[in-house]
Design a protein around this nucleic acid. Structure first.
Lengths: 218, 218
DNA sequence: GTCTATATTGTGATAGAC
DNA sequence: GTCTATCACAATATAGAC
C-alpha cells in the first residue's frame, strides 16, 4: 500500500527517477560527461545500471537532462535580475549576491558547465531555447534592451564611462564565476583548503560589487 | 641520408614525437582528456596508434605532457609580469595585453585547462612544481611579496581602495580568461560567430585595463 | 622507428525473469 | 519497476614483423 492513489504505476517523476537524476548530477559534475561511468551513477543512486536505461534510455540523454537542470539554476536567474526594473547598482549587487551564494553551495558547477559547453558548443542554442522558452536572440534582447537605456542614461549624466551592455554583463559574470571555475588552481597557488576558499569567497562577497561599480565610473 | 649527424637514431624530441605531441594537443583541447581517442590523435599526427605508446607509453602520460605544455604557456608569463618591477598600472595593462593576445590565438585553451584542473585537482601541486621549479607557496610568494607593497603604497596615498593582492590578481585574471572559457555561451547569447567573437575581444583589449584600474580607485 | 595484427579489458546497452 | 545475466563493440595496450 505504498501508492494510495489509483494513478497508474508509471507515474512521472517517480522517486526513483529523481534519485537517479540526483546521483547522475553528482557524478557528471565531478567526472565530466565523458569521464562518468553509468555503473558509478547506478551505485550512487542505489539501483542497477539497467534502471538508468529504463528511465533515460541512454547515457547521453541522461547527461542532457543533468546539463539542462544545472544550467537552469544558473542562467535564468541572471536574466531575471538583469532585466528587472531595478537600478543598475542594485542589479550589480543582486547578481554578485546571487552567484556567490549559489556557487558557494555548488562550487563545482562552473567547472562542469564550462567543460560541457566547450565539448558541445553546437548544443548551446537548443539549450537556451529549452531553459528560457525563447530563441537566444530573444533571450539576450530581453536583457540588453533594458540594460542599454540604463547605461546610456548614466553615461549621459557623466556617472559612467561608455561601455556596451554586452561588455558590462561579461565583466560582471566573469568576476563572479571564474574564481569557482579555476578553484583548484586558486586553492593550490594561494594555499587554501575548502575552508580557506570559502573565506576567500566571503571576502569577495563584501567587496566585489564595489569593485565593479567603481570600474564603471569614468 | 636524412640524418647527416652521427647521433644515434633514438634522438630525443624527434620530429615524430613533436608531431604526436602537437596532434595530441589539438585533440585533447577539443575533446578533453576523457573524451579524446588515441586513434584520432594518431590520425591527426599521420602515424599509427602503436607509435603513441612507443613514445609516451600510455594515453595518460601523453595527456599529462600536453597539459603541462599548455599550462606552461599560461601561468609562468603571468607570474613573471606580476612580479616584475613595473608599476601596478603597467602590470594591469601588460596582463590584459598578454592574455587577450595569447587567448585570441588559442581560444579553446581556457576551457581545456579548467576542465582538466577540475577533474584532477590533486595533480595541481605537482603541476605547479613542474612548470615553475618552485613549490606552490614559493611561486605565489614571489608574486605576492612584490604586489603587496605596491598595493599598500597606493592605498596609503589614497589612490586605491584597500584590497588584498590575492583578490586583485583573481579579479584581473577572471576578466581576461573567463570570456574565452565561456565562449560557446557568450557566442550563442550574443549571436556571435568566430569573427564576431574576435571583434568582441578586440573591443575588450582597448577597455579592460581601464575598467580594472577604475575599479581599484576608492 | 614504424607498421599490422591481436590481446584484453571496460562500458553502454538489451533480453528476459520476477 | 527492478533485477541478473549477457551481448556487442569500442578503446587502450602489446607482440612481433619489417
Amino acid at each position: 500500500m505504498v501508492n494510495s492513489t489509483d494513478r497508474p504505476p508509471a507515474d512521472r517523476d517517480s522517486a526513483t527517477e529523481q534519485r537517479i537524476l540526483d546521483a547522475a548530477h553528482r557524478v557528471f559534475v565531478r567526472r565530466g560527461t565523458a569521464g562518468a561511468r553509468t555503473q558509478e551513477i547506478a551505485d550512487e543512486a542505489g539501483v542497477n545500471k539497467a534502471l538508468l536505461h529504463y528511465y533515460f534510455r541512454s547515457k547521453e540523454r541522461l547527461a542532457l537532462a543533468v546539463f539542462q537542470r544545472a544550467a537552469r539554476g544558473i542562467f535564468p536567474p541572471l536574466a531575471a535580475l538583469l532585466s528587472s526594473p531595478q537600478a543598475l547598482e542594485d542589479k550589480v549587487r543582486g547578481v554578485v549576491a546571487f552567484y556567490l551564494d549559489v556557487l558557494a553551495r555548488n562550487p563545482f558547477l562552473p567547472g562542469y558547465l564550462i567543460c560541457e559547453m566547450n565539448h558541445f558548443p553546437e548544443r548551446m542554442p537548443e539549450l537556451v531555447r529549452e531553459i528560457t522558452g525563447m530563441t537566444p536572440r530573444e533571450a539576450s534582447m530581453r536583457v540588453l534592451s533594458v540594460l542599454r537605456p540604463q547605461i546610456a542614461e548614466r553615461v549621459a549624466t557623466g556617472e559612467m564611462r561608455p561601455m556596451t551592455a554586452e561588455q558590462f554583463v561579461v565583466n560582471l559574470v566573469s568576476l563572479c564565476i571564474f574564481p569557482f571555475a579555476a578553484r583548484p588552481m586558486v586553492c593550490t597557488i594561494l594555499g587554501l583548503d575548502a575552508k580557506g576558499f570559502s573565506a576567500f569567497i566571503e571576502t569577495r562577497r563584501g567587496e566585489l560589487a564595489d569593485f565593479v561599480l567603481a570600474g564603471l565610473r569614468p
